[in-house]
Amino acid sequence: MSSLADLVPEEYPWACPRVAGVLRAGRFVPHPDPVREVPPGGRAVLAVGSNASPTVLATKLPRASAIPLLPAELHEVAIGHSAHVSRRGYLAAAPYACRGARTPVVLTWLSADDLAALDATEPNYERITLADLGGSVTLALGRSEMPDPREVDLYSSRHGLISHLHSPEQHNSDHRDRDVEHDGHGPDGAPGAHPLPLMPQGELFALLAGHGELAALLGGSPAQVCARLAGDPAAREHVRRILSRGACDPRAGGASEA
């Protein structure tokens, strides 16, 4: 299996398993029915971003004995980008309520110890239940059961979602006359805001670089942008504060355009 260093930040989100399997001793092995490998008392956790990568999970949870991973489909919840910058310089994924959405994800099951360890790696997210977003999930492998949304967790951004208000035209018109700047500690719930969908880092940087305040920091190739932000904590904080203006509450909801 590749190492975390092989996962370059500009290519986030990284490849996730297309088949069911089990992560054991740092290696992902296909398994016809990984649900049989669920640890006693294991908690179902949806992975919508980097945690769907076996390489990332193996790095975050080196002591895990076995982690089942199963492709699944999320209903009434879509994926966008958290309104903060990761330490490696990319803009990470985050879920939000979205009527009519159907989203491919990876479902894992973690022991209590592994779940606590994973929580410790997610300071920018809070773990909530799928029911909190009004969603549901169906499993792959032709399984008919639908897990109780109250018994399935996922990580929701503490910063809100990057919204369409961060596009150059919308942001310049909607925020020009604001007298008070949002303090940047969470979504400000701007009326009419809706999240931008998950997209490749290069596309997202190019879109956001059209915003005058972000042009200098997000201009250039995706690799250059990630390296610039990864090497400058103050720049990451500056971008986060700008993105927090107009950020969407993940529970506020929207409607799928599909």
Rank of each mutant, 00 (worst) to 15 (best):
P233N: 06
L218M: 08
H175L: 05
G220L: 14
A234E: 15
G246M: 08
E203L: 11
A234N: 09
P197H: 06
R251M: 07
G192K: 04
E203N: 13
H238K: 06
S244V: 02
L154C: 03
L198Q: 15
Q170V: 08
P191R: 12
L196T: 05
D183K: 13
E213D: 15
M199Q: 14
R178M: 08
Q170S: 10
G210M: 10
P191C: 02
G231M: 07
A227C: 10
G189E: 14
E181L: 14
H211P: 12
S221K: 07
H164F: 00
P187G: 08
H185W: 12
M199H: 08
A235Y: 05
I242Q: 06
L165I: 00
A209W: 07
G184P: 10
L243T: 07
L161E: 03
L154H: 03
G246A: 11
L243D: 10
L229Y: 04
D177Y: 12
P222T: 07
S173A: 15
N172M: 05
D183G: 11
S221I: 08
I242C: 03
S167L: 05
L214Q: 05
L196S: 04
G189R: 14
P187T: 02
D183W: 15
D177M: 04
H166N: 09
R251G: 15
A247K: 02
P250M: 01
P197M: 07
V239H: 03
A209Q: 12
H185C: 14
H175C: 03
